[in-house]
Design a protein around this nucleic acid. Structure first.
Lengths: 152, 152
DNA sequence: CTTCCTGCAAAAGTTTTGCATTAAC
DNA sequence: GTTAATGCAAAACTTTTGCAGGAAG
């Protein structure tokens, strides 16, 4: 499920307005960059695309976009945050994470497994007094380029 | 699967020695603290237990312990790392994560689901050129205390 | 007596904030 | 006009590192 670009921008605009926020050029550039990537991207990558946008504005805008439900921030282990579009804009998916170089790839898993995880989440959550709203599944290992490389 | 405390310390000692490292009082205190918690703990919590240990030493020791395969460092979303014993010392498990207060709880999931995830990981990994070594599953939501609280 | 560990203080890296200016509506 | 967004610089925060002294084997 990938939205058409204009659909994406229209939705982002809508959700920001709902929060009393404006869909400015800088925000548009961030959404554009996120929408054209097939994996979560780092701040450095975003700043390359969102030409001229100050880093502080990028952080602020990403926070606003996350608050509005357009963007999702994630930590995958290499201590630098990555950003992707919110799940309802990209479709539910999970991540392959390389423990050596930090690369992150999107993957989809069979609906059947998703359903099993969902059922589990509900039952485990209620046992622990949690209201479970979702889940994250990361498959961690070594990417193609890092498979051959020794560690130390 | 929870090791007896003496078994735990013996194993930690062994693994450090294998790396040419010593199992000092400070390291022992960290392992002790991790071993007596039923969930991943933050640096602040560790420093409370490991009485008098300098923060820099704690970070260094945790890195050494991770390298030796005794400790595992994880990021759950609230930007401060948490630490737990390595999986083979605690048993494979996953986490319930509260998106409001950051609380993290250990949970175990049925072997059947683990097996399904494992099979999936292998097949998805090979498709993407990854060698998948393991997986993380976080169930995210609101803990008991935060369920009632409104957001803004 | 050699190697490793420790604490302190300083540095590094990422993310956040204050403030004056500019742009959106 | 009024409110919100931007850029810059400075601050905050977590984590890492340099170095001199101390402990372990």
């Amino acid at each position: 499920m990938r939205l058409a670009p204009d659909e994406l921008h229209r939705t982002a605009d809508e959700r920001l307005r709902r929060d009393g926020q404006r869909y400015t050029a800088g925000r548009r550039a961030l959404v554009q960059a996120l929408g054209s990537s097939d994996r979560p991207v780092t701040m450095a990558e975003l700043l390359d695309c969102a030409d001229g946008l100050a880093q502080s504005s990028a952080y602020r805008n990403l926070a606003v976009l996350e608050e509005a439900g357009v963007v999702h921030r994630l930590l995958t282990g290499d201590d630098t945050a990555r950003y992707e579009l919110a799940e309802d804009l990209t479709g539910h998916h999970h991540h392959l994470v390389c423990t050596r170089c930090g690369a992150v790839l999107d993957v989809e898993v069979p609906a059947e497994l998703e359903a099993a995880i969902g059922r589990l989440a509900a039952s485990i959550g209620s046992e622990a007094g949690f209201r479970v709203d979702g889940h994250r599944l990361d498959l961690v290992g070594r990417c193609g380029g890092c498979r051959a490389v020794a560690d130390a």
